[in-house]
Amino acid sequence: MSEFEPKIVAFFCNWCTFTAADLAGTSRLSYPPNIKIIRVMCSGMVDPKFVLKAFLNGADGVLIGGCWPGDCHYINGNLKARRRVALLTEVLKQYGIGEERFWLRWIAASEGTMLKEIAIDMTAKLKQLGPSPLRNMGQMAV
């Protein structure tokens, strides 16, 4: 049987993390293709519904990438994102999707290497964990 390949939906902020992904690319760093990137203007615009929908539609993990505190292009969008992530984590945790599947990470525009490491790290952790508990429920569930 082939190895389980987790699907990770990643919301990357335009100014820092997406730029870091761009840098990783131009630097010819390679990271697992499990990460599917959605470019957003700010981590602070990631509505909890985006994350819920990703999980309900079968994502094994969700990664939100934003600027480090103090570096947000919109001054504090990332800090709002952090509160929302804490809130949504509390909701999801009760039904079996915990911090290990739902990550928020600060990755600056210059941190292409860190982006690569986080992508490798998250993919490896999710491989160990196995598919999301929502995945087997299929669309019938949602």
Binding site: N57, V91, G138, Q139, A141, V142
Partner: peptide, 24 residues
């Protein structure tokens, strides 16, 4: 398209989605 993904789609859909959103 959603029905195609799993072969079925319960309708009205988004029931869990709605309640989880309300929780947040």
């Amino acid at each position: 398209a959603w029905a195609d993904q799993a072969g079925t789609l319960k309708m009205p859909n988004d029931t869990l989605f709605y309640h989880l959103t309300r929780m947040t």
